[in-house]
């Protein structure tokens, strides 16, 4: 499925087609990341039930050094 993740097109082979699976496929499971899909913020508890569709815009962000 083609998704737009952090501004770039990305093709992922998905089975359950959930946001949790997307995050797992990207190697981010268990990491302190936050997700936003098409402008909607989704907390980690929502990921396993959230169905992704082709072309969705996904942002995955985290805390970095800053002042």
């Amino acid at each position: 499925m083609e998704l737009i993740i952090n501004g770039s097109k990305r093709e992922l082979q998905l089975e359950s087609r959930t946001l949790a699976e997307v995050i797992d496929k990207l190697g981010l499971s268990g990491k302190p990341v936050v997700a936003e899909v098409d402008g909607e913020v989704l907390v980690a508890e929502q990921w396993p039930a959230f169905a992704v569709m082709p072309g969705m815009k996904i942002e995955l962000v985290h805390f970095v050094g800053g002042g």
Binding site: N6, P32, L60, V61, F63, V64, G65, G66
Partner: peptide, 18 residues
């Protein structure tokens, strides 16, 4: 204090500041 930025998907094993 921290900033919020995109995760670098090509280097996800990089240490998170946390």
């Amino acid at each position: 204090t921290f900033a919020i930025r995109r995760v670098n998907l090509d280097a996800v094993e990089d240490d998170s500041i946390l």
